[in-house]
């Protein structure tokens, strides 16, 4: 199988280049990550992040044939059907450190900016805080986020304003804590987001929904944040 992969090592290269690899796959190689590992066996200078190889850790997000996704749950058979050469590039919009490894500081900075933790200063009871199954259900589709950055780095608004726009991943998590009935700071959270840059850079083009490897829907969560803002304003 033929791959064309973005290569850049600041120690050696003056500028990025695309390198071809022709790899003989074994029958046990099912996912793109298996192929990348095989490429690395042949060329140990090729660098990428990977860990759980089952789509829960979020390490191996990359741009695959023009679309962001996780290498470990992208089937080689599906890629073969897309064309003779598989093109692999780092996630767009973030600084490249080396090959497919990008600097994700900006992404995590935005995640941290929404105060990603439950705040409840009422003295806790001896046992768990109660939450009805219905209230808990509100968190479904939110807490499952693996912070892989596929969504935020597919969002043009995040490309243009990564320092100011929270981005789909951050906003999805913002709503995860807004929606949690145990959190007491929903108003402060809404204040934190009511800003033309932080929230309203989202123009609902839904690239984020299209690429999310966990099938989450940041656009819907952003819509719910806006609903709450309207509710408390009018």
């Amino acid at each position: 199988m033929r791959f064309q992969i973005y290569r850049y090592n600041p120690d050696v290269d003056t500028k990025p280049r695309m390198q071809f690899y022709d790899i003989a796959l074994e029958p046990t190689d099912r996912m793109l990550l298996d192929a990348l590992v095989r490429i690395k066996m042949e060329d140990d200078t090729f660098s990428f992040r990977r860990s759980c190889r089952e789509g829960v850790c979020g390490s191996d997000a990359m741009n695959i044939n023009g679309k962001n996704g996780l290498a470990c749950i992208t089937k080689l058979a599906d890629l073969e059907a897309q064309g003779p050469v598989v093109q692999i590039r780092p996630l767009p919009g973030l600084p490249v450190i080396r090959d497919l490894i990008v600097d994700m500081s900006q992404f995590f900075k935005q995640y941290h900016s929404i105060k990603p933790y439950v705040v409840n200063d009422t003295p806790p009871p001896e046992t768990e805080r109660l939450q009805s199954p219905e209230d808990r259900e509100e968190l479904n589709g939110l807490y499952e986020c693996i912070l892989c950055a596929c969504c935020s780095t597919s969002c043009p608004s995040f490309w243009w304003n990564p320092d100011k726009f929270v981005g789909p991943a951050g906003l999805l998590q913002a709503y995860r804590f807004i929606a949690d009935t145990r959190d007491e700071t929903v108003n402060a959270r809404l204040d934190n987001l009511e800003d033309p840059y932080r929230l309203f850079r989202c123009h609902s083009i839904m690239n984020c929904v299209d690429v999310c490897p966990k099938n989450l829907n940041p656009t819907k969560a952003i819509g719910k944040i806006k609903d709450l803002l309207i509710k408390r304003t009018v």
């Binding site: 800003d195 932080r198 309207i230």
Partner: peptide, 13 residues
Amino acid sequence: HVSGAHYGLRDWL
């Protein structure tokens, strides 16, 4: 960077 202009909802609406 500074942010937190606290507008945007009215315009969006």
